[in-house]
Write a protein that binds this DNA or RNA. Sequence first.
DNA 1: ATCGCAATACCGGGAACCCGGTATTCGTTG
DNA 2: CAACGAATACCGGGTTCCCGGTATTGCGAT
Lengths: 216, 216
Amino acid sequence: MVVKIRVLLADDHRMLREALRTLVEKEPDIEVVGEAADGRTLLQLVRKLSPDIVVLDIAMPELSGIEAMSHLASRYPKLRVVALSMYSDRRYVIEMLKAGAAGYVVKAAAGTELLRAIRAVASGRNYLCPEVAGTVIEDISRRDGPARHGLAALGRREREILQLIAEGHRSSAIAKRLFISVATVDTHRRNIMRKLDLHSIAQLTTFAIREGISSV
Amino acid sequence: MVVKIRVLLADDHRMLREALRTLVEKEPDIEVVGEAADGRTLLQLVRKLSPDIVVLDIAMPELSGIEAMSHLASRYPKLRVVALSMYSDRRYVIEMLKAGAAGYVVKAAAGTELLRAIRAVASGRNYLCPEVAGTVIEDISRRDGPARHGLAALGRREREILQLIAEGHRSSAIAKRLFISVATVDTHRRNIMRKLDLHSIAQLTTFAIREGISSV
DNA sequence: ATCGCAATACCGGGAACCCGGTATTCGTTG
DNA sequence: CAACGAATACCGGGTTCCCGGTATTGCGAT
């Protein structure tokens, strides 16, 4: 009687979730215990279902994959996450790994890469698909100190608020949504602008799109 | 002995192709005869394999889904194509339907929608998933003249001002630059917003980037 | 000639944004 | 323990944004 790896899938595209589920459930040692379409639902399901592994798409609405990753890492230190993404760009890879992901697989890779990642991560190791392994090695060889620029200078809450601003929400709506005051939203926006040296909503929006926090 | 619907899958993300293949091949009346990762390979495989149906992702490298669709429609009039996309936006839907697609399904839909589309299209009918059916109906009910949508609805001056707004310039700076009054800038911005049904600078910026008026 | 649209411009008012400053609390790290 | 940063929150004031309304002029098409 083998113990199955209990996997939760998080991707906003329903068809892809279902298709990935079908692919993964062909494996006798893996079972999909749930699916989440956005970052918030993901957090709820993790609490409810206690999966072994989360397969987490980076580009998700509301609470982006990166934000969700940070939340998961702080609240569930034992949980192991495999990041799944269209992007093999260094920015995304490093960001997710820093946020606590144990694996990173691009959608251009074969389905077997995802299965390999799930099994490696479930057994306590980390996993990078070949497409991004070079990226990470290059980043390590470039690392030259704790200076943080751009997106890396923003805290978790700041990134969350930046996404909502860039998605067109007003401060009052953001405040209501996050159960904080409008003054706090304003303060965060100001801090974000100071750190990024930006001075308008348009510039914030452009930055957020460029950094993949918000989509076009 | 039932005749299977012979399907060719075209999507540049290998993992998704494989996952979709797994999903589709669970059906006894459908078989996947091939997979293409880009528009050129797609054309070659269609010639070689003569599938009944092509499931065609819009966003592909080399030859985009829309261009591939046009090529297929002119060279293989009997071939039936189901467009598969992240986008439910009217622009893409109408464009693909005009290019000759017999069906359109978004990735946010359930996997069963794709199966339904394949079967409908294979039996000679057209298929629109519910998420875009309203879009098409609205487009038809609007088709009462030279109605213009999105960017096409904007005049030269409006486009000029949209670009400057999206680049982060304030109304006062735009006014000074174009030798007009701030009130006029405000009026233009209002007209732009009305035509595009947008309500904030962030939304304008996102639109401008998407339309290539402004860059990230 | 007439009409419609683009470009220009204004009134008014309320809310949001931008930014100067301030503060407290909590958790982490040295 | 002390220091620092993140998160929360406020004061104040000026400007900009959003949007209700209005208007005129010039040009091109019919």
